[in-house]
Amino acid sequence: MTPRSPGEGPVSRRNFLRNGARVAALTGVGAVVGTLVHRTSSQTTVWQIDPLKCLRCGRCATECVLDQSAVKCVHSYDLCGYCELCTGYFVPEPNALNTGAENQLCPTGAIQRKYIEDPYYEYTIDEALCIGCGKCVEGCSRFGNGSLYLQVRQHLCLNCSECAIGRVCPGDAFRRVPVSQPYLLKTSH
């Protein structure tokens, strides 16, 4: 045996262990990455609401991590009946079928009502005002065609790993969709 100076033995042993640990750790990380790399998608996913599962509970307005929820009401015009008495626009038993605030279901007046031709009216969502409370969605889905529904607006959504609304959604309506098709729109066909 070659003579060793005091202290050299333990140091080299520890370095040996350290090198071994490093190789083991690199192998471990490599294994994890190797397992996942073919399962990863270059295509990111984003959160979206399945309108068929949405229960219009109103939590979208309050649970988003953003001050102004990224969920807004959208309108599929091809499904809309263009009704004069829109149950998504008017409160039940309105005083009159006009744009008076007391007649409107929307708490922020975010739905614009425009006369097209007799007897049709067009309803448009002003997204800057919409808070995603789903009151109009409830009215439209329960008594109308269901052409108003909630969607995550992707230009606003922060795409959190865990959607703060999704985890308290009573309908389990939030799911991840590929970013190439970031909306789950209702259509007539």
Binding site: P51, L52, C54, S76, D78, L79, C80, G81, Y82, C83, I116, E117, Y120, S141, R142, F143, G144, N145, G146, S147, K186, S188
Partner: peptide, 14 residues
């Protein structure tokens, strides 16, 4: 209702 059944048919605009 959630299925978006057309209770009120979409209008045909003149």
């Amino acid at each position: 209702a959630a299925l978006g059944e057309a209770r009120f048919p979409p209008p045909e605009f003149e």
